[in-house]
Design a protein around this nucleic acid. Structure first.
Lengths: 142, 142
DNA sequence: TAAATAAAAGATATTTTTGTCTTTTATTTA
DNA sequence: TAAATAAAAGACAAAAATATCTTTTATTTA
């Protein structure tokens, strides 16, 4: 569904959002530990998210990552990392699949895509702060 | 959503099903042409599908690929090629995500997965024979 | 039985994704 | 201002997915 990169990005943002909510900046090592991601790979992803404005960073002592806007949708994150193939692409990979030129599963797929989009559009990175803080949901396995 | 391999596999099976329905065996070159897939790559996929029993093949003159069972579900095809990650995996990639140990989007994802599964389970490779024969749906772009 | 046909199998190549390591730049604070 | 801190940037490496090419095996038919 999502690329590994995108999975790490979402998990990282949810963690940083919760930490920001609690008033803390966090370094990438701490984030990597919290979401169980490879440190240098995650660092690249965080750089990318920062460049794209979904995340803020501060250098130097007491620096780290934090989020300024809790109302960024998960759809925006997915779009930033994986593009909008998930939201608009053909299920069978046809470049010019459309209503007038449909693949066999065009209609069925359209409705699946709509549900996915609805789900991702209606959740924001800040929506899970409390659940995460209370330990009711997890961002890593171990 | 699906791997490229899986997209080719579905498109190929739908084409072969329709051709079988019309009483024709088809060679892999013809299939590649009909669904716009790289010939040798497709050949590998067809071999795999044949080994797994989703497809039949005959060697020699007048040989080619054909399907014996029109009632194979698209879900079975996806499962054979991409495994059941799509049907049972965690949206955020957590290996042991579960009801009692959920990721933040566990419930939402569950419902999306159910809809995808329903869609793929309720369509078979033979369901599109007529639409394809009539040219009302497409298996390639050009 | 020989020739032609077509899939099967095996080896190899390319591209993309995922992951790692090192150096540089910016910021803070003592 | 110097030292420490932490992200940014760049080069590199490994693995997986995608794609290609050649040889072998099985089948049919003339």
């Amino acid at each position: 569904m999502f690329s590994k990169t995108c999975e790490y990005a979402i998990r990282a943002l949810l963690y940083i959002a919760q930490q920001s909510d609690a008033g803390h900046k966090v370094g990438f090592r701490q984030i990597a530990q919290a979401i169980d991601a490879p440190e240098p790979f995650l660092a690249k992803i965080l750089q990318d998210l920062t460049r794209k404005g979904l995340l803020q960073s501060a250098k130097g002592p007491n620096g780290g990552f934090f989020v300024a806007a809790m109302d960024i949708s998960l759809a925006a994150v997915v779009r930033a990392i994986d593009g909008d193939k998930l939201f608009s692409g053909c299920g069978l990979g046809l470049p010019n699949c459309s209503e007038t030129n449909p693949c066999p599963i065009h209609q069925q797929f359209k409705s699946v895509r709509a549900q996915i989009q609805k789900m991702l559009q209606s959740s924001t990175i800040g929506d899970f702060n409390d659940l995460i803080a209370q330990g009711l949901v997890r961002l890593k396995s171990a």
